[in-house]
């Protein structure tokens, strides 16, 4: 018989990822943790309220907003796409780890999908802890982990003949231009930023 995938059912003890509907917010929550993907505007108050605790003396909130340029190239707008069930699972794993590591009372991470107009929030992270130091550190670490691992992709549209690119957080590398479908090699290789890593690839191996 064919071999079973070792990876299929390992994490069955975790919360089951919900079925995802692109038109609706998708979320997972468990005690002290809330993660979500949404096509709606992000709401500070609701994220803060997710982590509010009488045992916390500090809440730190990070807001990532969409910038109007990349290395001085004007960006007209950005859009985000995700592999929602996997992205939520990864967000949950990150939040569990950081909650424990920093002794947090709560952590919430919400990423927006679809077109995000310039200057608007694309991600909110809130953490609460008894004292501020842990909250500052945890907030930064949560964001860095998210940017390194969560299966969300940003596309920057430059407008005009500039087309658009899929951004890669790693090394700030530019992915393949997306202004036209392409079959075969063509100029793809020139557009790849090999970066220091030699492959510009993901930094995670499982």
């Amino acid at each position: 018989m064919a071999t079973q995938q070792p990876t299929q059912t390992d994490n069955s003890a975790q919360a089951q990822p919900p079925q995802t509907n692109p038109a609706k917010p998708t979320e997972i929550s468990e005690p002290g943790i809330y993660v979500a993907l949404t096509h709606d505007h992000l709401n500070y108050q609701s994220v803060i309220d997710r982590v509010r605790s009488p045992e916390a003396g500090a809440i730190v909130v990070f807001a990532g907003t969409t910038r109007n340029n990349f290395n001085s190239l004007p960006v007209q707008h950005l859009s985000y796409t995700s592999y929602a069930p996997l992205a939520l699972r990864t967000m949950l794993t990150i939040c569990r780890s950081i909650l424990t590591k920093h002794g947090l009372k709560g952590i919430a991470m919400v990423h927006r999908l679809g077109v995000v107009p310039i200057g608007e929030e694309s991600i909110l992270i809130a953490v609460s802890s008894p004292h501020r130091q842990a909250a500052w550190r945890a907030g930064e670490e949560a964001l860095e982990e998210c940017k390194a691992k969560v299966e969300v992709w940003k596309r920057e549209e430059f407008g005009g003949e500039g087309g658009g690119v899929w951004r890669a957080n790693r090394d700030g590398a530019v992915g393949v231009k997306v202004d036209e479908p392409r079959i075969g090699k063509g100029e793809v290789d020139e557009k790849e930023d090999e970066g220091d890593s030699g492959n510009g690839g993901n930094d995670r191996k499982s």
């Binding site: 070792p6 990876t7 890669a168 079959i183 090699k185 793809v188 790849e192 492959n199």
Partner: peptide, 23 residues
């Protein structure tokens, strides 16, 4: 099926099967 995809995309990418990363 998609000539050039290995060099342009796959060599930089990871693969999942049923939401789990595979080597």
């Amino acid at each position: 099926r998609y000539q050039g995809i290995r060099e342009a995309v796959l060599d930089h990418s990871l693969v999942t099967i049923n939401l789990g990363y595979v080597d």
